[in-house]
């Protein structure tokens, strides 16, 4: 294992190109302890947390761009986010602990690919995009299509996440919802996370987005549920239909943090709470 600390992006891509082992990016590194056993011996690790060019939080073309190595403290203290995306910012208040917030990066959290990560459900409902860069290329993809499976991503060789782009007005005039249920109130791994956005006019659902974490192999939007709900009146929603759709769209498991039934019931309850219905 060779550990690299490139001087800048250019240097990073040069080093990547010359590397003939499997390359890993390391940003933050607060989860690395758990993964050291799984990292093969013959790998090169490229530390990128110190590259400030990847760390800015700025406004570009109607989007707030959050650099992939922005720490959670950066996010929690950002005036841009406070002004334009307060729901996103406030939802992360109890992310990990202050010590981890100071080190952990948003890009690391996403690319770590844990099904339980706290950020993805938020990014999914906020229509976030990812800016990906490689030596000679850069592309923007919807965050929605980034996860392909458990710890599988739409990332090419030597490509990394440069920034997360969230439309500046993503929260405007919308009702927002975010609830993470863990074993304790902070510094805890989610048993289930539900995030939602909705716009209701004349008691009719005009806009709806729901994303869940910890109940599938990666965090995802509940598209079938959204399709069912859109244009419905709240009082037209049927408990059995809702239950049936969710039962197909989520695949919770029992592990030592919680059990399948609990995750299912709580997911259902939280979605009902978000929708404001009480069967």
């Amino acid at each position: 294992m060779i550990f690299y600390r490139p001087n800048n992006l250019k240097n990073l891509f040069e080093l990547l190109e010359n590397s003939n082992a499997t390359n890993y990016f390391l940003a933050g590194g607060t989860d690395i302890n758990l993964q050291t056993k799984n990292i093969p011996k013959n790998v090169n690790i490229f530390y990128i947390s110190h590259l400030n060019v990847l760390r800015n939080i700025t406004e570009i073309n109607g989007h707030i761009s959050i650099g992939s190595t922005a720490t959670f403290s950066d996010i929690l203290h950002s005036d841009y986010l406070a002004k334009h995306l307060p729901f996103f910012q406030n939802s992360l208040k109890f992310f990990a602990s202050p010590i981890i917030q100071n080190l952990a990066t948003i890009g690391g959290n996403i690319v770590n690919g844990s099904p339980t990560n706290d950020v993805s459900p938020l990014l999914l409902i906020l229509d976030a995009k990812l800016e990906l860069i490689s030596k000679n290329n850069s592309r923007i993809i919807p965050f929605n299509s980034f996860y392909r499976g458990y710890k599988e991503f739409d990332l090419q060789k030597n490509e990394l996440v440069k920034a997360i782009l969230i439309p500046k007005n993503a929260e405007n005039n919308l009702e927002t919802f975010y609830q993470k249920v863990g074993a304790r109130n902070s510094l805890t791994i989610s048993k289930i996370t539900v995030a939602g956005l909705k716009f209701i006019e004349n008691n009719r659902i005009k806009k709806i987005k729901i994303a869940v974490g910890s109940v599938n192999e990666y965090p995802r939007r509940l598209v079938n549920l959204e399709n069912y709900l859109i244009t419905k009146r709240i009082n037209e929603i049927k408990k059995d239909e809702l239950t049936k759709i969710i039962a197909v769209e989520i695949t919770p498991i029992s592990d030592f943090r919680s059990d399948q039934n609990y995750r299912f019931v709580v997911c259902l309850n939280l979605i009902e709470k978000f929708l404001g219905i009480n069967f």
């Binding site: 602990s97 074993a183 304790r184 109130n185 902070s186 805890t188 791994i189 030592f256």
Partner: peptide
Amino acid sequence: VKYSKNGRMLTNNMMNYKIPNRCD
């Protein structure tokens, strides 16, 4: 304190063994 079926302790670190913190 949780064990696997074979008697291995699953809660053998402070990530899996939760003690209350200030927010609780």
